[in-house]
Design a protein around this nucleic acid. Structure first.
Length: 586
RNA sequence: CGGGGUGUAGCUCAGCGGUAGAGCCUCAGCUUUGGGAGCUGUAUGUCGGGGGUUCAAAUCCCCCCACCCCGACCA
């Protein structure tokens, strides 16, 4: 392709609504254009990248034995009603809904479990037809409460989603392993550094899930990992161990002390400097919403630890949990916030749960549900009933690994893939069944496997850019190389550029020729760096000696190469570029 | 949905009661051709929309809308 013929408008300034590098650079490099909040046109250069990503995904899906199909984007709400998720999605407000001419209710597909289950249910009758793994790649729609960061969190985005259907759990395990292995290969081939982490399966449910995270400082997710064992998990899910404080001594008589104005652990640490935060127990009240009711729950947490609300929600089997507001705290404890505790409880129905870090504590401090005092040398089981214990802590850097004596480390990541074992959640709800060997009707055992295709493009930029622009991994760059004609009015240079361009094409290198006559060499260099071609060939001042410059975008390293060898050198440099890396593997 | 902020040219922004502005971009021409180069000229707007106050509103007030940020939410 000749750049003089391309529609590619680069910008000197980033739009003011862009915050993260990928968003700024995509706009500046002319890759995207905003049509509405979270809705973008993918320009010709970005589309090339998206096609390359899709091709890798398709290739690996097919290799893993999956079959491609295309499900409807315009979905009848009826199938959502059947799975029982319609009201959840409508209430959450993330579903785009539409009516047809006759008033029928449809939606723009936010995901496709219902559509695929409906399809498979009517086409698969026998265990002999199993297993099946089907996938599609297309636009998904979610009316996100807060679209942001350009393509990272849009309301319309391209996703590859695959679904496996098996007769039993063992079959699901095998299908899941095959997809997981394909995912590793996909992200490696895309040239990304990534991690596979244990994840919370969220509202989609199921027995287990892992997320594939592209490491980047701007990632929205926090990952904790132990690089001695390969344990890695989303912080929402991460298990940790914390050491019990030493020298707690034998149980002492409980006593209540004045603590006027001390509402936080920090205040109390100041008042009792010899008592560490680990010897305090804070009581945090939550409003817990279940499908059919609501309750108040008090969480007892060690003073130096924080509550992980996802763990709490899962532990309670709740639809949602939210921190109680001040009015609720007053009603439940009869006291202003800051003094809640497990002692002298006013509300007899109040449910207590405690983090496991509280279990070994002796002679600790806690609230008494009375203002301006706290109790010291409290012991559970003696001074108040021993509550049920569960892991409700938020994992932190430096905690002990659940798998070894190593300390956990943290990293930020962008979720680009998620694999789930769904089990029979959707098939049972939608009565999607097959006849098994024993003649009995059974629901399909399902898995689902998503990859954010457009998000991969954004994540690749978040992970690979510098102050000059994008640094595309070679496999997903719009073009692998650019030939810059830096002497526009020199016929020798123009001729050389044409020949190198042809030679690159002949050797299979995806190349664009910057032959724009109205742009100076400086502009072409800036554009080449902004757009992020992995390799640049500059035809300029050395052309008289029969030489051209070959520059690697990532390193900036430049070498002079004889004109006749330039194409081969570019090819060699591209081939030498590393593939992606699966980090933190044991 | 709660809190905050911003809407002026394609982009970045100034102007904040008295004739609509700059830089970049676009277009024409000249010059230039190794780092977003220079000169001359040209084009560009319901100042987000509606209502109000005023002799006069981009500017002040009210309502709406859009966009952005924080939070809540999230296959």
């Amino acid at each position: 392709m000749r750049l003089s013929k391309c529609l590619l408008q680069t910008l000197r300034d980033a739009p003011s609504d862009a915050e993260v590098p990928s968003h700024k650079l995509m706009v500046r490099a002319g890759l995207i254009h905003k049509a509405a909040a979270g809705v973008y046109t993918y320009g010709p250069f970005l589309w090339r990248t998206l096609v390359k990503i899709s091709t890798i995904v398709r290739d690996e899906m097919d290799r893993a034995g999956a079959q491609e199909l295309l499900l409807p984007q315009l979905q009848p709400q009826e199938i959502w009603a059947r799975s029982g998720r319609l009201q959840t999605y409508l209430d959450a407000g993330i579903m785009f809904t539409v009516k047809d001419r006759k008033g029928g209710d449809f939606c723009l597909g936010p995901t496709a479990e219902e559509a695929i289950t409906d399809f498979v249910a009517t086409n698969v009758r026998s265990y002999k037809q199993l297993p099946q793994t089907l996938y599609q790649s297309q636009t998904k729609f979610r009316d996100e409460f807060r679209p942001r960061f350009g393509l990272m969190r849009g309301r319309e985005f391209i996703m590859k989603d695959a679904y496996s259907f098996d007769a039993d759990d063992a079959g699901l395990d095998a299908s899941y392993r095959a997809m997981r292995a394909a995912y590793v290969r996909i992200f490696e081939r895309c040239g990304l550094e990534f991690l596979a982490v244990q994840a919370d399966s969220g509202d989609i449910g199921g027995s287990g899930s892992e997320e594939f995270m592209v490491t980047a400082s701007t990632g929205e997710d926090l990952i904790v990992y132990d690089d001695t064992t390969g344990y890695a998990a989303n912080v929402e899910k991460a298990e940790t161990r914390v050491e019990a404080p030493s020298h707690m001594g034998d149980p002492l008589p409980m006593h209540v002390e004045p603590t006027p104005g001390d509402k936080s652990v920090e205040d109390l640490c100041r008042r009792f400097p010899r008592l560490s935060a680990a010897r305090m127990v804070k009581t945090i009240l939550y409003r817990v919403v279940h499908r059919d009711r609501e309750e108040d729950v008090a969480v007892l947490m060690r003073g130096d630890q924080d509550v992980n609300e996802v763990k709490l929600k899962n532990h309670l089997g709740a639809a949602s949990v939210e921190l109680a507001d001040e009015a609720r705290v007053r009603r439940v404890t009869g006291c202003e916030p800051g003094y809640a505790g497990p002692l002298e409880v006013k509300d007899g129905k109040l449910r207590f749960v405690a983090d496991t870090s509280v279990e070994p504590l002796r002679n600790f401090l806690c609230g008494v549900n009375r203002p301006d005092v706290h109790a010291l040398d409290v012991n559970h089981g003696r001074d108040f009933p021993t509550p049920p214990f569960a892991d409700l802590r938020r994992a932190r850097e430096g905690d002990l690994s659940p798998r070894s004596e190593a300390r956990l480390k943290t990293a930020r990541g962008i979720e680009v893939g998620h694999v789930f074992k769904l089990g029979t959640k959707y098939s049972a709800a939608m009565d999607a069944c097959f006849l098994d060997r024993d003649g009995k009707k059974k629901p399909f055992v399902m898995g689902c496997y998503g990859i954010g295709v457009s998000r991969i493009a954004a994540a690749a930029i978040e992970q690979n850019h510098d102050d000059k622009g994008i640094v595309w991994p070679r496999a997903i760059a719009p073009y692998q190389a650019v030939v810059v004609l830096a002497r526009g009015n020199d016929p020798v240079a123009a001729d050389a550029a044409g020949r190198i361009y042809d030679a690159l094409h002949a050797s299979g290198v995806d190349t664009v020729l910057d032959d724009r006559e109205d742009q100076s060499a400086g502009v072409k260099f800036k554009d080449a760096e902004l757009v992020g071609y992995p390799v640049r060939v500059t035809i300029g001042k050395h052309v008289a000696e029969g030489k051209v410059e070959v520059t690697v975008r990532r390193t900036g390293g430049t070498e002079l190469v004889p004109l006749t060898e330039a194409a081969a050198r570019v090819k060699a440099l591209l081939d030498a570029m590393p593939s992606g890396r699966h980090v933190g593997r044991s």
